[in-house]
Design a protein around this nucleic acid. Structure first.
Lengths: 260, 260
DNA sequence: ACAAAAGTGTTTGTGTTACACCCATGT
DNA sequence: ACATGGGTGTAACACAAACACTTTTGT
C-alpha cells in the first residue's frame, strides 16, 4: 500500500518519505507505510472519603456522546508520550501531576477500536493524593472523580475500550501495592502509618492488623522515613509523621492474605 | 496542524477525515491530527546450551546498517498489534510462535527515536523453548540467536532504542520467573523438574538446591502436572515427566535469595 | 562397585500472625 | 474516668534453607 501526503508547513518530512512532487501549490510526499493516529489515555486513581476513585470525563461529541471516558487525546508531532499524557490530563481535567510518577500500562490498538480512523492508544497509570475538586478549566467542566465500584468490570459503561483499560489499571495498582511503595503515592507528602494503612484497606477491601502493619512498614528499609514531627487528629495518641522513602520495591512484599 | 492525505485505493478514510477534494486524479482528504507510523518489535528469548539467548536480526539498510536489531516491522492497516508481532517474527526469522503466549512489554515513542519519521513502536516479549536454528526464509538469512551476555546493558550495540527494549524485556522475564509460571515456557511440552530448575539457574545465574526446588515446584497447585511417564537421560535415577499446569501465578513466589 | 542424578527426611532458624497490653490524647 | 487510636511485646506457628540420606539408573 502506498500513501501520499500533502503536508503543511508545520510538518517536517523524514528521510524515506520520498518522491516529493507538486499538485497545484502543495508539495506531495509518498510514504511506504500505513498511517496511524496515536493517542494517550490516563487511568488516574485517588482515594476520596475512604473509597477508590477514578478520574473520568463526560464526552461532549460523537461517538459515545454523553458517556464517561478516560481523559486523553492526540499526541503532538514532536511530543513525548508521557508529556502528552500529562498535558491532556491538565487540559481535560485541570489535574496537574508535575513531580509525580506516571507509569505506562499498555497500548491498545485493535483495528476497530475507534470507528473514525485507525488509532493506537498508549494508556498510562497515574496515582494522586486526595486532591481538591477537579479545577474548573474550560475543558474541565465535565471532569469528575467517580467511585470505581460504579464502573469496574462494566465494559459498556465507558466509551471505546476504556472499560478494559480501567480494569487493567486497577488490577495493576492492586498488584503493585503488594511489592512496591505505590501506596505512598496515594498519600500527601507527609502522612501517618494509619493513613498509609487506610490506603491498603481501601484498595484491597479488607481490614489489616494495625500493630503488625506498623511493624512491617517501619521495618522495611527505605519505605517510609520519619519526619520527627507528630500530629494530633482527634481522640487518641498522636501519630508520628512520615515521608515516602527512596525504596521502590518492598522486600519481602506485604502479603494480601489474612494479615488481620 | 493540518495534514492532507492523498490516499491510494487500499485505504478507507474514517469519519473525521473530512473535506475530500481533488488534485488532478487523486482524492485529497484532510485530517486534524498528526500522522504516525506504528511498528512492533519483539524481544524473543530462549535457552540454548545453558545460556539465555535473544533473537536478533542484522540490519541490511540504513540507518544502523550492519547493526543488530530486534525483529519487527510496520503494523498493517487492518491488523491487530499482536498479530503484527507474530507475522514479523515469522517473516524476519522464520520463528513461528503460534500457540505460545506473547506479552506486551511497553511502547517506545520518543520523537527522535527514528531519524526518518515519527514512529511509535509497541514492544512484545516472547519466550520460546529451545528451537531448531532460525528457519532460513528469504528474510531470515540474517537472523541469529545471540547470547544475552553479549548485548545486555550495552545500549549502543543494537540499532535505534532496541538496547533499552531488550534490557526491559530481560528485567521483566527475570522478575516474572519469581511469581508466574513463565519458566515452563522455556521448556518443551514435557519436561523434568531438573530441566525446569536449569531454566531458573540460567536466568538468575545462581545454583538452586535440587531437593528444595523439587519440593517447592511440585507443591504449588497447578504449576506442573505429572504425565506419569519416566525418562532416562544418562547416568542417574530416571526422572518423572511433567507438563505445564493451569496455574499462571505462583503463590507463594519462588524466592531469588540464596535458596541453595 | 562406583558415580551421578532424582527425590525424601529432618533440623534449624527466620518471619508472619494473632492478640494482649501499654501509651498519649480528646471529651 | 473513659473512649479512641498509636504503637510495642510476645508466644504460636508456618515455612524456607541447609544438608544428610535413600533410590535408581549408567558405566
Amino acid at each position: 500500500m502506498r500513501v501520499q501526503l500533502i503536508v503543511g508547513a508545520a510538518w517536517r518530512p523524514r528521510l524515506d518519505v520520498v518522491n516529493p512532487t507538486k499538485y497545484g501549490d502543495a508539495v506531495v510526499y509518498t510514504s511506504e507505510y500505513p498511517i496511524f493516529a496515536v493517542t494517550v489515555d490516563v487511568v488516574c486513581l485517588t482515594i476520596r472519603r475512604d473509597q477508590l476513585h477514578v478520574l473520568l470525563v463526560r464526552r461532549g461529541g460523537a461517538p459515545y456522546r454523553g458517556k464517561f471516558a478516560l481523559p486523553g487525546g492526540f499526541v503532538d508531532v514532536e511530543e513525548d508520550l508521557d508529556d502528552a499524557a500529562r498535558r491532556e490530563l491538565v487540559e481535560e481535567t485541570g489535574i496537574d501531576l508535575t513531580g509525580l510518577v506516571i507509569e505506562q500500562l499498555a497500548t491498545y490498538g485493535r483495528p476497530d477500536r475507534d470507528p473514525r480512523q485507525r488509532t493506537v492508544s498508549v494508556v498510562w497509570l497515574a496515582v494522586a493524593p486526595d486532591l481538591p475538586e477537579t479545577a474548573a478549566g474550560s475543558d474541565a467542566a465535565e471532569a469528575h472523580w467517580v467511585p470505581v465500584t460504579e464502573v469496574e468490570h462494566r465494559p459498556r459503561r465507558l466509551a471505546f475500550d476504556h472499560g478494559a483499560m480501567l480494569d487493567q489499571g486497577l488490577a495493576r495498582a492492586r498488584a503493585k501495592l503488594e511489592y512496591t511503595s505505590l501506596a505512598t503515592a496515594f498519600c500527601r507528602p507527609e502522612f501517618t502509618i494509619a493513613e498509609l494503612r487506610r490506603v491498603y484497606e481501601v484498595i484491597w477491601g479488607s481490614g489489616l492488623d494495625p500493630g503488625n502493619f506498623h511493624r512491617k512498614v517501619t521495618g522495611v528499609a527505605g519505605f517510609v522515613v520519619p519526619t520527627g514531627e507528630q500530629v494530633r487528629r482527634g481522640g487518641g495518641r498522636p501519630a508520628q509523621l512520615y515521608r515516602a522513602g527512596p525504596a521502590t520495591v518492598i522486600q519481602p512484599p506485604l502479603l494480601r492474605t489474612t494479615f488481620g
